[in-house]
């Protein structure tokens, strides 16, 4: 049947090798209010509009082969996330980014891409650490005080039950060079599929432990500055973790 032939042609099995482009991307402004799944569709359509030869998974419901390093919450900007996109032939990363960028909505942009062979480790599995910038009135000092605590207990919903967990171990370090502006705080936290600290959870801890204003916390501008592999403080560049 026609349909089967078509899906075979574009899927992985037909191709001995997949050619992966690993790109950094930023997502800022209104585009940040789009959920993670919707962002994947946005990338998929932009790549199709750019006529780039993206591969599809095999099976009943073929999906474009795209791996994101770490899901990105609604309302959070990013300046340094990673995505691996599998192609059926080699396309120079520069050309790929230029064509796809022309087709992405405002606020989403690829940069710093490299061509790699099929990575041995999935992009998701190499991420361990994220650096965030939080911008909110007077947020720096109370946030730094959180680092002095021995434990930071927050309530989390897990399988319908509310459990208390200690997020202190997930808080790795403040930035080597903290901005002079007291409304900005930059810090390293655990990120990835094993240990992960969500910025909204951190903000609620700030309200709980430091009496930080809840409205100000809700209005905080959170930006993911970059993602790393390795183990803190020996962080590794994700581009080199193949």
């Amino acid at each position: 049947m026609l349909q089967n032939e078509r899906s075979l042609e574009m899927t992985r099995q037909q191709h001995q090798t997949e050619y992966v482009v690993r790109c950094l991307f930023e997502r800022v402004g209104v585009a940040s209010f789009v959920g993670h799944l919707d962002l994947m569709h946005t990338f998929d359509r932009a790549i199709r509009r750019a006529e780039m030869p993206i591969l599809y998974t095999q099976g009943y419901n073929p999906r474009p082969m795209m791996v994101f390093a770490l899901p990105l919450g609604v309302g959070i900007d990013t300046l340094g996330d990673y995505v691996d996109i599998s192609l059926s032939r080699v396309v120079d990363a520069e050309e790929f980014m230029e064509k796809v960028n022309n087709n992405l909505p405002r606020g989403v942009k690829l940069y710093g891409g490299i061509n790699i062979d099929e990575p041995k480790n999935s992009l998701m599995s190499v991420v361990t650490t994220a650096m965030y910038r939080i911008k909110a009135p007077g947020v720096q000092d109370p946030m730094l005080r959180l680092f002095e605590k021995d434990e930071i207990k927050v309530e989390k919903k897990s399988k319908g039950k509310i459990v208390e967990t200690d997020i202190r171990p997930l808080l790795l370090s403040k930035a080597q060079k903290m901005p002079e502006d007291k409304d900005i705080c930059e810090l390293y936290v655990c990120a990835g599929s094993v240990k992960n600290l969500r910025p909204d959870v951190l903000m609620s801890a700030l309200c709980k432990y430091e009496g930080y204003d809840e409205d100000a916390a809700a209005n905080a501008e959170v930006t993911r500055l970059s993602l790393f592999g390795g183990e803190y403080p020996k962080l590794l560049d994700i581009k080199e973790l193949l």
Partner: peptide
């Protein structure tokens, strides 16, 4: 605070 904030921001291709 609302369901699906992406409805209200525009910025589409």
């Amino acid at each position: 605070s609302v369901e699906s904030p992406g409805r209200y921001v525009g910025g589409e291709f």
